[in-house]
Design a protein around this nucleic acid. Sequence first.
DNA 1: TATTGTTATACTCTATAACTATA
DNA 2: TATAGTTATAGAGTATAACAATA
Lengths: 147, 147
Amino acid sequence: MAKDIQEITDENLRQFVGYNMKRSFLTVREDMARTLEPFGLRMTSFSALAIIVENPNISQSRLAEALHIERSNVVVLVDELESADLISRNRVEGDRRQYALRATTHGAAFWAEAEAAVLAHEARLFSGLSKTELKTLVKFLRSVGSG
Amino acid sequence: MAKDIQEITDENLRQFVGYNMKRSFLTVREDMARTLEPFGLRMTSFSALAIIVENPNISQSRLAEALHIERSNVVVLVDELESADLISRNRVEGDRRQYALRATTHGAAFWAEAEAAVLAHEARLFSGLSKTELKTLVKFLRSVGSG
DNA sequence: TATTGTTATACTCTATAACTATA
DNA sequence: TATAGTTATAGAGTATAACAATA
């Protein structure tokens, strides 16, 4: 008796660009999580650290906008990074409501390490594409929704 | 007194292809959710219906594999689609453990409608890219992780 | 023993609402 | 009145573990 292996196909979904984006993004995210785990970072905390390093004295509200998440969720995020001594909450003269977030010396160095790890992770993951093709991919991705 | 608008940048993150993928995927997902809402479908139920239409008599376990989710979550998903009379659970002769999932007549027609709506949504969202560019984008996306 | 479907549960991510302290 | 930060809570989405029926 022949083993009836019915091959499952997903052509109905593959016709959609969004489905292909989802599949490949999930692949990237999975590998990314593995890459960041040794650093004790999740994708969002990595992103937050990146933004703070690049924009010293940013407030939590502005950070929320940059990350496209709610202010309320930034609180926990900043708590984490502060506990790990990667960033500090500093008072702002002239406005006692907000904090000025800054990376600590350790945080800046730590960021550089994580950055290098993620670059290595991407080099591995996108090794099927040339430098030029990667630039094209990013250009195409950035055009989404600007119709 | 000049209003000190400090422009927030994200170059640290933009250098990563994964970040660009995430941003554009989130844009697509948001628009996709709006497109499917009138149909009473979420992205996952839409995908499940797509797979079942394309692969009649697929089992729940095989569906779980195709969707890259756990069998346990497929149960609820299939419950939903069955309640909406879009698919049916049918017994398999020779193996009373599994179900053979099939789209109902209504389900098949409903799928065609949803498919058309999503195609229109994608045409709008990716209007910044030509047909050729879209093919290239998909090709690049599918190459991810195959290094 | 292994597989299919099932239930219950937990964890992550994110959003909403209401509060406080400042402005 | 409006803004910054905070707390509590709720809703998705998904994963894990244990189980009954069947192979």
